[in-house]
Nucleic acid binder design. Sequence first.
RNA 1: CGCGGGGUGGUGGAGUAGGACCACGCGGGUCUCAUAAGCCCGAGACGCAGGUGCAAAUCCUGCCCCCGCAACCA
Length: 547
Amino acid sequence: MIKKIFIGTAWPYVNGDLHVGHLAGYLIPADIFSRFCRLKGYETLMVSGTDCHGTPITIEADKRKISPQDLVAEYTPKVLELIQTYQITYDLFTSTTTDNHKKITQEFFLNLLNKGYISRQKSYQYFSLTENKFLPDRYVEGECKHCQAKEQRGDQCENCGRSLEPGELINPKSKLTGSSVILKETEHYFLDYSKLQKQIENFVFNSNHWRKWVYNESVGYLKEGLRARAITRDIDWGIEIPKNKISTNFLIDNIEHKRFYVWFEAVIGYFSASVEWAKKNNKDWEDFWLDSSCRHYYFMGKDNLIFHTIFWPGQLIGQEKGYNLPYFPAVNNFLLLEGKKFSKSRGIHIDSLEIAKKYGVENVRFYIASILPENKDADFKWQEFKETINNELVDKIGNFIHRVLIFFQQKLNQKIENENLTQEVLVKTEETLKLYQENLEKCEMVKTFNLILDYVNFANQYLDKNEPWKLLNENKNKCEEIIFSCFQIINNLRILLWPFIPQAMEKLSQFFNLKIETKTGQDNFVFGLLRNIKLTQKPEPLFKKLN
RNA sequence: CGCGGGGUGGUGGAGUAGGACCACGCGGGUCUCAUAAGCCCGAGACGCAGGUGCAAAUCCUGCCCCCGCAACCA
């Protein structure tokens, strides 16, 4: 049976350049996993896109006195270039501004409405008299009424973690102009999560294969009890409410000037992008969303955790169509830079494109993979970056490959007659292949990374212990066996390392006139021997040291 | 008592009761196929204090410290 895998990654806001935190948070781990699934021959669909509708977009646009459209148009190409540069294997990278996404978001809403999960509530929202408009929560800041923390946003206090209702902020002010704001009545649609509490609990309690802290965090949130959550906002940038399809007695006031709240809308992108992909490729999205054997993996930073373990599952459950729920939220912690949080204005910042241009995509991918913040915050250190590349990638991995290839070419004249595999190598290889797959199935990238290094250490030790350069004249038969066995290790490394450093492994493949196969239904982790080895070119080092 | 995570040699990690392991770094040695690469040997650690156990890095209690859930941010 062919396994089906859906991979959703966080949708980056297009309000600024992406820094290496984005790489470590979701782009690289998702891509490693995606490539692993394709090597396994799983039917894999990975989608994402730019999140264009958030309030962060309008804030940034206002700040720069340009339209949200212009802001989106400016940053989108940069995001696309980044994905291209790092070779992130999306099947579709789209945007929340498509007609398709708009239509599906509206359908999701109407479904929830018809199933009785939507309510209307009047409430007081912050309104700026000077700007003559309602201000989104994020435009407003003041003191939290629970813990008195200052400069909290209007929707949630990040100091004590509590959600804040409008009016619960003390001394509210416009974040943009600094002027005071008043409360004014407004009406919104709400998604009543209290009606979904039981089903969401059922879903979460059955998911204890999640990372422990992810599970605990979600359970902790559920314990407080779910409440109805507003899904519309008073804003003009975003997806319109389909008022023509709502019975007139259920319309809310001033509906033309409301848009869907971005938290509600952006996650629907996982679904709408799947539909868009299916249309473009003449496939069925149902294969991924209705076939219960398809497992859904999501990659995101920890600030997105609750949205993927509680809110988005709730939206899906509320469709009552049996859509697949998240199977594994691969939530990452944050990446620090030399022990400090990223902050562009304070110069604590590494642009993802710049570092790729300066040091090479493969080097960046390799180092980031070695420090992914899977279980706690990780630290990007320049010194460590260079040491990891020079000592591990170049000296251990690159040098091993190179010494074998050179020996083969110069001492054996590219001829091996004894194609016999040493038992020791067979055992180590099979064990490595097994653990590799077990770890990656659980999205344990760092463990997998260390496993590969362990395999390479074994390889270097094996070579030194057997000294084929001495056997060359004494026992050519044995000498060939050693080199032949080392070639099998290299051939496996080619596959095992491909998800981490794809371009380098594709280059290595060319030496042997091979390709990395990712055919659906074909498992590339079955250990097969590489025979009749011929090099297509003179061996040259795959990796170079950094100064 | 808001919620959650974490303290293991110089650094980063693994290890949830029974030999404290891995990589880098450091000191010494050695090979020579290789990219001043490789290999071998060595020094060096379980935050603190109690408790339960034949046995605790691991379980329990108390304490100390760090971090996230805010901030142009995933």
